[in-house]
Design a protein around this nucleic acid. Sequence first.
DNA 1: CGCCTTTGTCACAAAACTGTCATCTCCTTC
DNA 2: GAAGGAGATGACAGTTTTGTGACAAAGGCG
Lengths: 239, 239
Amino acid sequence: MIVQMNPTRTLLLVEDDAAIRSLLVLHLEQAGFRVLEAPDVRTALRWLDELLPDIAVIDWMLPDVAGITLLERLRHNDRTRQLPVVMLTARAAEADKVRGLEGGADDYVTKPFSPRELLARIRAVLRRRQPEPEAGPVAFGGLELVPDRRVVRREGAEQTLGPTEFRLLHFFVTHPERVWDRAALLDRVWGDDAFIEERTVDVHVRRLRLALRPLKADGMIETVRGAGYRITAIPLEPL
Amino acid sequence: MIVQMNPTRTLLLVEDDAAIRSLLVLHLEQAGFRVLEAPDVRTALRWLDELLPDIAVIDWMLPDVAGITLLERLRHNDRTRQLPVVMLTARAAEADKVRGLEGGADDYVTKPFSPRELLARIRAVLRRRQPEPEAGPVAFGGLELVPDRRVVRREGAEQTLGPTEFRLLHFFVTHPERVWDRAALLDRVWGDDAFIEERTVDVHVRRLRLALRPLKADGMIETVRGAGYRITAIPLEPL
DNA sequence: CGCCTTTGTCACAAAACTGTCATCTCCTTC
DNA sequence: GAAGGAGATGACAGTTTTGTGACAAAGGCG
């Protein structure tokens, strides 16, 4: 009987030291991970290009580009922005830790470390990330969002959205009916560290509506004057 | 005319540089904050003594006592422990940031910064602190008010109200049966600082009735000649 | 490098709200 | 039933909020 069979997780391991790498691969695979090995950033990017892992473990010091740089690149790309990252470092310096965490690392492990410790951190990060699965397709009021392709579907018809449009719609769909004011949307869709005019939200809402028009679903995004916007399930015209 | 959707927030600004201070005051007040200015910690403490603000913005470097010290003091006092604090600092040193956040600052902004950035941080902090006033739905005599969307519902049918109409109905519903004269309504619905003709109340009552007509509920708002208005639960016609 | 997409801002048009009036109705009272 | 007074109406002009279309800057990608 299966109590809790976790689906196999894919893990990207970016580490140049072959010895450490194979040691980790051993443990990681034994722990049920499918490991993508990358001795350098170039290889890592190739992997990422073809397959989005569930988590990445990145060595701080790498031969070609600093691991921290890779981290920043990941955070800069829409596809990898949500990717959980655990940094691996030989330095115990606090400054690095801060920089790493600020750069968006979810945790970091200092060498020397036991594989068990790394594993524990990885699991903790995955667990923490779990509650907000940005990945799976979402459906609401006849719409279906496909995060992989940034596409909305309705009765077969498809519309591709821009990155921000998609995140916005995704947020609405996962928090339906309620009214969200512009500030809240900036916080939750753009991130609370984005310093953006509130009116920009209007523009993006408009773009989203425009994109939804071909699906005759633009009416789902309602304006609540003086308050904000909300998505609501309404009877839609047939396509 | 003044429509203040959000209640005015009070903000304590502790900053010794007069130039920066007045610049910030300008922006903060324009953003709707009531600003308590303090060039030093002593003044700040005096303010705090007589009035607890909604948030404090504190400069890291101050003439008398370091801002960080003030922060620590705030955190040690029961009354101010929960006060949201945004630190303002010229130093970009990470160590300081860490210390500030550990000291209990809710966020911190590095100089030079744009007033807009500061404003965004302040709003984010306030939002984080005060999740939602949670304006729950209210019901009375078959009507159901949904503050979130500014709509009244009756047996499924919905009517969207204007902001003032909604506030007015909301007031009636939460203070039913009794008669309210125009002055009282102006006070409680418009705010006691509103400088408005009493007759204006009539107009809004009418607009409210108009909006309620489709729900056949306009009869609930009664006119009491020579006294004012009141809402009553009466048997309503079926829809 | 140029080409193209994505984005944040603007400036201006469109729509929604508001507070006041002038006028019209209806109720009271004599 | 005429005169007053109190409310109800419909129209307005002034503001505030949104919707739009255009643009330029920033990246991504050959």
